[in-house]
């Protein structure tokens, strides 16, 4: 990049967070994984946690997340990130541990691990990226694929009589006593992205305070496998996904509420 003179009266308001490496991601153009990665990195930077964080990448499109996060990371078997995180955090209570999981990883193959980790109140944070499709394997039906939504393994649209209903993970986990903070956010516009960042901040702060399990479900797009344009995918997501998966907190424990009021 050519050197650019920055006028002296200009101040820096946005740059790549230290918790992200300079690597270019392999994600498709317009994929919201990149936004969610960056938000996590910004929050860890702002809370000063980069050097004590251990992240766990899933199996799915974000399997290579460890190339993009600039801190210690492990790569889990499909769905097992919460068990790995449990093993890490229990032996390293001074570390900040998070799992980054997609819908197939968390809501299908890894359902047992996430439910039990949440129910035990494990002190790690899960970022659950829900884009209602299997991205990496090329667009098959996910546990969160909407009724009627077309995928390569439900080519006539998801038939709930055949395949059952999509999983509402935030509601499911929010109902468990071990969870401190569970929320569903979306990164479909600037406002939603700001809210998602705020939710991530709350989740990591609650982890630091040892208040219980925390999860931020992030509704996301997959324009490639939805066979839509980047902007068309955002519109479809706002129109259809948010209707099926309502945004907002499904659990804010009294302790988290007190933490937020304290400021």
């Amino acid at each position: 990049m050519a050197t650019i003179d920055i006028p002296a009266d200009m101040e820096l308001v946005y740059q790549r967070p230290e918790s992200l490496t300079p690597a270019h991601t392999h994600y498709c153009p317009g994929c919201t994984h990149g936004i969610i990665h960056r938000l996590i990195a910004e929050v860890l930077d702002e809370l000063g946690l980069r050097e004590r964080t251990i992240g766990i990448a899933p199996v799915g499109c974000s399997v290579l997340a460890y190339y993009y996060f600039n801190f210690d990371m492990a790569e889990a078997a499909h769905g097992r990130a919460p068990a790995m995180a449990t093993g890490m955090k229990r032996t390293n209570p001074d570390k900040v541990v998070f799992t980054y999981q997609g819908d197939g990883d968390l809501a299908a193959i890894g359902t047992a691990e996430i439910v039990h980790s949440a129910n035990r109140g494990e002190l790690f944070t899960t970022i659950f990226v829900n884009n209602a499709i299997y991205g990496m394997t090329g667009g098959q039906m996910a546990p969160t694929t909407l009724p009627g939504q077309v995928s390569t393994s439900c080519p006539s649209g998801r038939d709930v009589e055949l395949a059952g209903f999509p999983m509402h993970m935030a509601e499911l986990l929010g109902g468990l006593p071990g969870t401190a903070y569970v929320t569903r956010q979306a990164v479909f516009d600037v406002r939603g992205i700001r809210r998602t960042k705020k939710a991530l901040t709350t989740a990591f702060r609650a982890q630091l305070a040892g208040l219980g399990f925390t999860m931020v479900e992030v509704l996301s797009t997959c324009n490639t496998n939805w066979h839509m344009s980047v902007l068309g995918a955002l519109e479809w997501a706002k129109d259809k996904m948010v209707g099926y998966y309502p945004l907002g907190d499904t659990k804010v424990s009294d302790a988290v509420r007190a933490m937020l009021e304290e400021k």
């Binding site: 006028p7 200009m10 308001v13 946005y14 740059q15 991601t25 994984h33 990149g34 936004i35 516009d189």
Partner: peptide, 18 residues
């Protein structure tokens, strides 16, 4: 910084006049 906030690829660095 709206562009930077929505960019999935960290393309933007943003400055603002004090």
């Amino acid at each position: 910084a709206s562009c930077a906030i929505i960019c999935p690829d960290v393309v933007f660095t943003v400055y603002r006049r004090k």
